[in-house]
Computed example of a mutant assay.
Amino acid sequence: MTEQNATDRPAVVAKDGGRGARTRQRRVSMADVAQLAGVSSQTVSRVSNGDAAVVETTRKRVLDAMKELGYRPNSAARALKRGDFRAIGVITMGLTSTGNVRTLDAVAGSASRAGYAVTLIPLDAPTQENVKGAFTRLDELAVDAVVLIMEVHLLDTAALTLPPHVKVVVVDSDATDFPVVDTDQRQGARAAVRHLLGLGHDTVWHIAGPEESFAAGRRAEAWEEALRAEGRAVPPVLRGDWTPGSGYEAGLRLADEAGCTAVFVANDQMALGLLRAFHDRGVRVPGDVSVVGFDDIPEAASFIPPLTTVHQDFAQVGEWCVDAVLRELAGETVTGVRLVPTTLVERHSTASPAARGRES
């Protein structure tokens, strides 16, 4: 095609049923831009797609014409043509847990910095059927990859049908068919137990998260392993559901355990409930019982007392998820589990045990 001479403005209005006094505006087309800029439609397309081979003066003329006419390239059509949507889908088990929300925020921020949009698919209930349904919807969504925040045992890859172009990265899972990014849950739990034993406590009690949770399971396993490695007694596990209310109920039970001088709680929200229960029952923290949480939520430093806890680097989790996605999209084979290290943050909820236990 040859360049066109543009002497007239493109028509962007059309007569409405022969009524000369009424007009309706139509969508500006690529041909309109080409006519105003005096170039071919193919040249307009090349400018829209960022073709570096277009002469700079021609590019400027096309961009000026786009601006004047209010033309917006059809990004969806261009993405379909080149098979690159610049979008990442995120499937999450829900937006009620601190870990899921902060992981989602980290993934979204990292994706945005990489020039990708995020499409969120929250699951109403953690069932295998809902997981399958979420993946089925991917056939209708313009995404290049999926980050699956999977904290429960529901990923049956044999039952899933994925669009062939979609890459998958999983957070907090034991998946073997996809790359996994996770916080080093075991490292954090071991650090919590060792900190408390190092202060002189004979053993450490544990309030675990839900049985179906991967993170809760790994933290509980590491807690027990750390105690056995030191030859310490392993108290019975108390179990909560990540909420302050469940931590409060566990705290009421532990307040009656005279031998309990140290507690490792599987998340900070349950630790908050535990602290309130101890306060209500007259148990001093850390004078009578030392408490360590997990997550290091922003409010942890404002608890009474400020909470010693295991810090999870959610920003790093998000960056590594997006990094794995981009490497897969670039054609690299990404496998295995990548663990983000944790850090124990010491505040004022832990101390050496009292010589004679709790004061009356």
Rank of each mutant, 00 (worst) to 15 (best):
E3R: 14
E3N: 09
N5I: 13
N5H: 10
T7M: 13
T7H: 13
D8L: 06
P10G: 01
P10K: 04
V13H: 08
K15N: 14
D16H: 11
D16C: 07
G20N: 11
A21S: 11
V28Y: 02
S29V: 06
L36G: 06
L36F: 10
A37W: 05
Q42L: 12
T43G: 08
G50Q: 11
D51M: 14
M66R: 00
K67E: 15
L69S: 08
Y71H: 11
R72C: 01
P73T: 07
A76R: 13
A79Y: 09
L80F: 14
G83C: 09
D84C: 02
F85T: 06
A87K: 07
M93V: 11
N100A: 12
D105K: 09
S110D: 06
A111Q: 00
R113H: 05
R113C: 01
Y116E: 02
L123M: 15
A125R: 13
T127C: 02
N130C: 10
N130F: 06
G133I: 00
D139N: 06
L141T: 01
A145C: 07
L148D: 08
L155M: 10
L155A: 12
P163Q: 13
H165N: 08
V166M: 04
V170M: 02
A175H: 01
T176N: 06
T183I: 15
D184Q: 02
Q185Y: 03
A189F: 09
R190P: 07
L197F: 09
L197P: 01
L197N: 07
L199R: 08
T203E: 03
V204W: 05
H206R: 01
H206E: 04
P210W: 08
S213D: 12
S213N: 11
A216C: 05
A216N: 06
G217F: 08
G217W: 06
R219M: 06
R219V: 00
E221R: 13
E221C: 00
E224N: 12
A226S: 15
A226K: 04
R228W: 01
L238D: 00
G240V: 07
W242T: 14
W242I: 12
G245A: 15
S246K: 10
G247R: 04
Y248V: 10
R253E: 12
L254G: 03
E257T: 12
A258W: 01
C260V: 09
A262N: 03
V263Q: 03
V263A: 09
A266K: 00
M270K: 08
M270G: 05
L272P: 06
L275Q: 08
A277I: 05
F278A: 06
H279V: 00
R281H: 10
R284Y: 03
D295I: 08
P298Y: 02
I304P: 05
D313M: 08
V317S: 04
G318K: 07
W320N: 10
L326C: 10
E328I: 02
L329G: 11
G336R: 14
V340N: 10
P341G: 01
P341L: 02
P341I: 06
E346K: 15
S352G: 14
P353K: 04
E359Y: 04
S360N: 07
